[in-house]
């Protein structure tokens, strides 16, 4: 008997707990720029349950906006309340260099803290600034990886020209280009970067507003370098997950994107002090 395909199951509204889905790009709470429904961690976990998402990797909104310390407290509270369900990103503001070491020492030893999230636009700092370089040095020393917001050429803080300049100096640090560059031209550039640099990866959220389909990225990039992220709760988790479930990829590609590629990344950059 032919097994039911993921698409057939999705059309029947199945829940995909068997895929052990890991969402590598989530936030927590609400930001200032626009409204979306309230998203406390317990609500996010309820939504994850409905889609069969096993793990959420979070960087609270506050962490990438004006109060990164508050954001890190929220992250810590969430991973303690939901061990095994929530991973956290340490959020750092590049203008607070004197606090880096204390922040790394406080949060990085916690197993569920898997890396660093930076949002140059949120903190209004160019990704090639001194503060970020110091952060990347710390990650190089302590392990984990960096999830960085990216966008198009109009973004003065983290367009891909700046990203490439900053990231190529740290070949031992793994970087995820969040949103894969975000705009139609920048996605093309992001594809070039992941092909050129072994330490640079992509995620699947954000560039969905462009005319690039997920199929095209899997044809143009090393497959294992594409990670599933939804930007939940900026974006609805259902939307991010169904983008993969209803795509024209093979079932094994869907499973790879939703889980296996992330596990490979995590194994490839263990933290030294966990």
């Amino acid at each position: 008997m032919t097994p039911t395909s993921i698409l057939e199951r999705a059309l029947s509204r199945d829940t995909f707990s068997d895929l052990h889905i890991v969402d590598a790009h989530c936030h927590l709470g609400t930001g200032h720029e626009f409204y979306h429904a309230q998203a406390a961690i317990e609500q996010m976990i309820r939504e994850a349950d409905t889609m069969g998402v096993e793990k959420l990797c979070i960087a609270p909104e506050a962490g990438i906006e004006c109060d990164y310390k508050y954001g890190n407290e929220l992250m810590l509270d969430s991973i303690r309340r939901y061990p095994g369900r929530v991973y956290g990103y340490l959020c750092l503001n590049p203008f607070y260099e004197d606090e880096f070491e204390r922040m790394f020492d406080t949060y990085y030893p916690i197993e569920q803290v898997i890396g660093v999230k930076i949002h140059p636009g949120g903190h209004r700092a160019r990704i090639d600034c001194e503060g970020y370089q110091k952060i990347f040095h710390e990650v190089e020393k302590r392990g984990g990886f960096v999830l960085s917001h990216t966008w198009g050429d109009a973004d003065a803080y983290c367009n891909l020209t700046l990203c490439e300049e900053a990231m190529r100096r740290f070949p031992n640090v793994r970087f995820i280009l969040a949103h894969s560059g975000g705009t139609v031209e920048s996605v093309k550039r992001a594809v070039q970067m992941v092909n050129r640099y072994p330490h640079i990866f992509l995620d699947t959220c954000g560039f969905d507003v462009t005319e690039h389909w997920i199929n095209e990225l899997t044809e143009q990039c090393p497959f294992e370098k594409i990670l599933f992220g939804s930007d939940f709760p900026y974006h609805d988790l259902r939307y991010g997950v169904t983008r993969i479930l209803f795509s024209n990829l093979t079932d094994s590609q869907k499973a790879g994107l939703l889980h296996e590629n992330f596990e490979k990344l995590l194994k490839g950059c263990p933290k030294t002090n966990a």
Binding site: L11, W213, R238, Y239, T242, R243, F246, S247, N248
Partner: peptide, 15 residues
Amino acid sequence: PYLEPGTFVGRILYA
């Protein structure tokens, strides 16, 4: 085909 249609089918089915 500017955007991927499947995700919007899924968004309603799972709403």
